[in-house]
Design a protein around this nucleic acid. Structure first.
Length: 760
DNA sequence: CCTGATGTCCTTTTT
DNA sequence: GGACATCAGG
């Protein structure tokens, strides 16, 4: 390396040896195995800077792909800091956003309009629900969720509906699960999406692959345009994404992937760890670089994390270590209820902040599921601790926002069935379900589109609805015309007003109505901002909609007050770090989630999730659990998570400051009330109230638990085979401790258990 | 066709 | 506890 620019030398000086290698190995295939906290974002940032500034690579020929909007945004900011304005021209973003841009430019090759609509999973699921209904199938068997995830998994594995119907194994699986029609639903769904000019999330990837497969001239164009491909969080790519990466980079072969198998937590959406193995196979001259030094956390935290992850079987060998100080032990907080847990965490944050002069923004509270934030939020509010919740029900999933967006989409694309169903009777204009059904049936019978029927609806619908439909059609045509000569903001404002949506919300003076009105205003503001951005080339409504469909992350930090405690799920936390981390809800069935422990692979993924949570912490880590918790509106007894035992106990100490009931100062009336209150609630909790509706085969024993004895072999529909170790028939909660072959010991509430006795 | 009341299902993570 | 579907009655 000679003639390095001085600023480049400065950057490189701050790196350790493997990191520097990661920056400088620009040509040829390269894989960075980056342990938690090993500074991979820095490597990626400098690598891009090095390409642009030292090797004079045109930013326009570098593609950097990430998984979440958040990661993309952060990387862009960091690169901008180093290379300045040039960063603007990088192909950088999430897989979905980058490829939707390519698809937008090339849509005509696939027979899609260039302003195709993007369906989010809610749109997809309701479309599936409608299809199931139309096919006359039982929607308790063909649940939209089940069908959707089946279709999604197929697309992620590049299986088209044609392939699906031909695939004996898939069809056999479906038949065995008594859902033989899923293939047909897939077909109808795919065709309906196509007719609607719409792609769902998976289509954005699936169709990109298809585009490159079927139109080699297009692939060729991008292959030559893009000289360097970088992929962050490679362990989270699915097969489809992997194929796209490989195709795109097959000419120059300058592909660099960065990942950590220990942080693979997206198998549920098709991520495939074997991509890492395939990668070595597909690129024999692959250069593998391991980043093993952790710069983020104390020794205690790093070692505790290692002690957890080493319980997993399959992993790439690596040794994550740190030269940082030893640090405090991990503190274990026990609480009696979810509310007390919130209170203890809030108190602890308050004290630590005071004691060590920390900022609120140094703290994060992580949980497994979004619904856990409620109890915590209440406690924080009560203590006047400022916080922000990241993720959760995003702005763009709110009803009023989706309603307006549906109007905007339908104005752009009258073939869009999902939007049509949303807005046809909103505000109420006397076009009910039966009328909609008639229209859809007519469209199917005549082999034409809904929009065609709408324009001449009188012969197909009852006389009462004809007038309103004509008005609706005229209104949409007017919107569509106006949109052509206006920018996104003026068009959206016109539509919000003209449709009557704005007025309806304005007239609703309830608290919720008011906030809905404000939300719509805020969406309009967002569009205004979009239009006013001087860098923005394309200010049409179509381009705005395309972009907005992929925004799921929270409202941009308005940065009014950045000093807030961060609340989020572990999934959202990947890639971030905080001085203090509170991991709450460390309870069996919550974390690991009860849906995720039916196989060893799933349990190991949950354990990786725990690993991710631990390694977010720089200085201190707190783990907490509650003994009782409201779930589905019912108070449940909880057991501490098995993951607590996975941590090498020499790194843990039980919190003395707060230890739940036992240590509550006896003088405190509040604590006394709390205790009696909780005891009362526990005592009065109704025992297994509703008779289980589970339709089990005759030999399953949901109710007659007296037949169950220790030593019996049993089968559970989800957890597999096991042996009964211990019965606990005292009190209302009758439990059995069972040792399952797949997942180890587990205590089941018998009132909900669906056990089959195999032998006595 | 609309409204309000009741009933049912679901409980997981993200683009 | 909440989203959604369904049903009865206007």
């Amino acid at each position: 390396m000679f003639n390095l620019r001085p600023d480049m030398i400065d950057y490189l000086d701050t790196l350790n040896e493997p990191q520097r290698e990661g920056v400088l190995t620009t040509d040829g295939p390269c894989m960075l195995i980056a342990g938690a906290g090993s500074g991979k974002t820095r490597v990626l940032t400098y690598r891009i800077a090095y390409l642009i500034q030292q090797k004079n690579v045109d930013p326009f020929s570098i593609m950097a792909l990430t998984f979440t909007n958040k990661a993309a945004k952060e990387m862009r900011e960091r690169i901008e800091k180093v290379v300045g304005h040039d960063a603007r021209n990088l192909w950088m973003g999430t897989f979905h956003s980058v490829f939707s841009r390519i698809l937008r430019a090339e849509a005509h090759h696939l027979g899609y309009p260039h302003d195709f609509t993007i369906y989010d999973s809610d749109d997809s699921k309701s479309l599936i629900r409608n299809i199931v209904k139309e096919m006359g199938l039982d929607d308790t068997v063909y649940k939209p969720n089940t069908v959707y995830s089946r279709i999604s998994a197929a697309k992620n594995r590049l299986i088209s509906w044609e392939d699906y119907l031909r695939n004996a194994e898939l069809m056999g699986d479906d038949a065995a699960n008594l859902r033989p029609e899923i293939g047909k639903i897939y077909k109808t769904y795919a065709m309906r999406c196509f007719k609607s000019g719409a792609m769902d999330f998976d289509d954005l990837l699936f169709n990109t692959d298809k585009l490159f497969k079927e139109h080699l001239e297009v692939l060729n164009k991008y292959q030559h345009r893009i000289e360097y491909v970088l992929v962050d969080e490679f362990q989270d790519t699915n097969l489809c994404q992997y194929f796209i990466i490989r195709k795109l980079s097959s000419v120059k072969e300058n592909v660099c992937v960065v990942g950590d198998d220990a942080q693979s937590i997206y198998a549920f959406r098709g991520a495939d760890i074997t991509n890492i193995l395939n990668f070595e196979r597909d690129y024999p001259d692959l250069k593998v670089i391991k980043l093993e030094q952790n710069y983020r956390s104390t020794q205690n935290i790093v070692q505790a994390a290692n002690s957890v992850i080493k319980r997993n079987r399959a992993q790439l060998p690596k040794n994550v270590w740190t030269a940082n100080e030893e640090g405090n032990l991990i503190e274990l907080i026990k609480a009696v209820s979810d509310n007390e847990e919130g209170r203890l965490v809030a108190t602890s944050i308050f004290q630590e902040k005071m004691q060590h002069q920390m900022k609120f923004s140094d703290f994060a509270i992580l949980y497994r599921t979004n619904s856990q934030s409620r109890a915590i939020e209440e406690a924080l509010r009560r203590m006047n601790i400022k916080y922000k919740v990241v993720g959760g029900l995003s702005f763009y999933q709110r009803k009023e926002i989706k309603d307006l967006l549906a109007y905007l989409r339908f104005t752009m694309n009258q073939q869009d069935e999902a939007s049509f169903r949303r807005i046809i009777n909103l505000p109420k204009r006397g076009i009910g379900d039966s009328t909609v059904d008639k229209i859809v049936v007519a469209a199917n019978d005549h082999g034409t589109s809904i929009w065609e029927i709408l324009q001449n609806a009188t012969p197909f619908v009852g006389g009462r609805a004809a007038g309103p439909i004509d008005d609706f059609v005229a209104m949409i045509k007017r919107f569509s015309l106006e949109t052509q000569r206006k920018d996104a903001y003026d068009a959206a404002f016109e539509i919000a007003k003209g449709s009557g949506l704005l007025r309806e919300l304005y007239e609703d003076k309830t608290v919720e109505g008011l906030s809905r009105y404000e939300n719509v205003q805020e969406l309009l503001n967002a569009i205004k901002e979009y239009v006013d951005d001087p860098e923005r080339q394309d200010k049409t409504l179509g381009s705005f909609l395309q972009e907005v469909s992929l925004v799921t992350g929270q409202d941009e930090d308005k940065d009014k007050d950045p000093d807030k405690v961060t609340l989020m799920t572990i999934h959202m936390a990947k890639g971030l770090e905080f001085k203090y981390v509170y991991m709450v809800g460390m309870e069996e069935d919550l974390f690991p989630s009860q849906m995720m422990i039916s196989s060893r692979a799933e349990l190991e993924e949950e354990r990786r999730l725990f690993y991710v949570a631990i390694t977010r912490a720089q200085k201190r880590l707190f783990l907490s659990y509650a003994l009782t918790r409201y779930r589905f509106g019912r108070l449940k007894n909880c057991e501490p998570s098995r993951f607590l035992d996975d941590v090498d106990q020499s790194f843990i100490k039980v919190s003395t400051k707060f230890a739940g009931l036992e240590s509550a100062p006896p003088s405190s009336q509040y604590a006394k009330n709390l205790v009696t209150g909780i005891k009362k609630t526990i005592a009065s909790a109704p025992a297994a109230p509703k008779p289980t509706t589970y339709k089990a085969p005759a030999d399953f024993t949901p109710s007659d638990t007296s037949a169950l004895k220790e030593g019996m072999k049993v089968e559970h529909p989800k957890f597999g085979f096991g042996t009964v170790l211990q019965m606990d028939m005292s009190g209302a909660d009758r439990k059995a401790k069972i040792n399952f072959t797949e997942i180890g010991e587990k205590t089941l509430l018998l009132s909900f258990a669906k056990l089959r006795i195999i032998e006595n």
